[in-house]
Computed example of a mutant assay.
Amino acid sequence: MTHTPFRIGVLGTHSTGKTTLLKRIEMELRGHGITAGRTGNFGRKAAELGLPKMQRHTETSTEWIIGRTIASEIELGAVDVVLADRAVHDALAYYTAALEFHGKPFDSAEVERLRLLASTQAPKYGLLIATRLDPDAPVNKQHTYDPRYRALVDKHVHQLLEEEQLEHLVVGSDATSQNGAIQTAVENALKAVGA
């Protein structure tokens, strides 16, 4: 590998437009002649392996998702821009939200170890985008999300980013916020790759 790609990571609770946002960023970048690749679908892959997810998330499933995210971002190293559909801290927020959902403490040595693992990757992201839950936005009826857990994930994502003092862009569900995030992402990427 002769260069380090610019990395854009998105995180946030489920069904808040993360994948759609990254697809739009990818299309804009390609329109500027920038190569981009997306990671993702680790929740589905974890389920195929029998690992728990959502409110049943465990330290094992969290570590597996963080590890797969890291590996996938490295595997895309030949592109100009890596678009991480769920930056590494996302898995940690899902896990701590699951702990709170079940009334379990999340100040354990295991959580701290996972937090340290995620923190090693933070400097690799040139831009982090965190979606904000809009409880009034419609959710795909095919999904049976627990609304309380969904709200807890949103809380834990934003709390974790603040606690870790990770600079990030918060994006709402409205078109103005989404379009602004896309513009910011494209501008940052173009500047980083010298286009």
Rank of each mutant, 00 (worst) to 15 (best):
T2A: 14
F6R: 02
I8G: 00
V10W: 00
T13S: 15
H14M: 07
H14D: 09
H14L: 02
G17M: 05
K18F: 05
T19M: 10
L21V: 05
L22T: 05
K23R: 14
R24V: 03
I25D: 02
I25L: 09
I25K: 01
I25G: 02
M27S: 15
M27H: 07
E28A: 15
L29S: 08
G31R: 13
G31I: 15
H32E: 14
H32P: 03
G33I: 12
G33L: 12
I34D: 05
G40T: 04
F42P: 01
G43R: 02
A46I: 01
E48L: 09
G50M: 08
G50V: 08
P52N: 11
M54A: 11
Q55M: 11
H57S: 10
E59F: 04
E59K: 13
E59T: 12
E63D: 14
E63K: 12
E63L: 12
E63N: 11
E63M: 10
I66L: 09
I66M: 13
I70P: 01
I70T: 14
S72I: 05
S72A: 15
S72G: 15
I74L: 11
A84C: 13
D85T: 06
H89N: 04
Y95P: 00
A97N: 08
F101Q: 02
F101Y: 15
F101H: 14
K104N: 06
P105E: 13
P105M: 11
P105V: 08
F106Y: 11
A109L: 10
E112Y: 12
R113I: 02
R113P: 03
L116Y: 03
A118T: 09
S119Q: 14
S119M: 12
T120E: 15
A122G: 00
K124D: 07
Y125W: 06
G126E: 06
A130K: 00
A130E: 01
T131W: 00
P135Q: 07
P135F: 09
D136L: 09
V139L: 15
K141M: 08
Q142I: 10
H143C: 01
Y145D: 05
D146E: 08
P147K: 13
Y149N: 03
Y149V: 06
R150W: 04
L152S: 03
D154T: 09
H158K: 11
L161M: 09
E163Q: 12
E164I: 00
E167A: 14
V170C: 04
V171W: 00
V171M: 12
V171C: 04
G172M: 06
A175Y: 08
Q178E: 08
N179S: 12
N179V: 06
N179P: 00
A181V: 10
I182C: 10
T184A: 14
T184L: 14
K191Y: 07
A192S: 14
V193M: 07
G194T: 07
G194A: 10
G194N: 13
A195N: 06
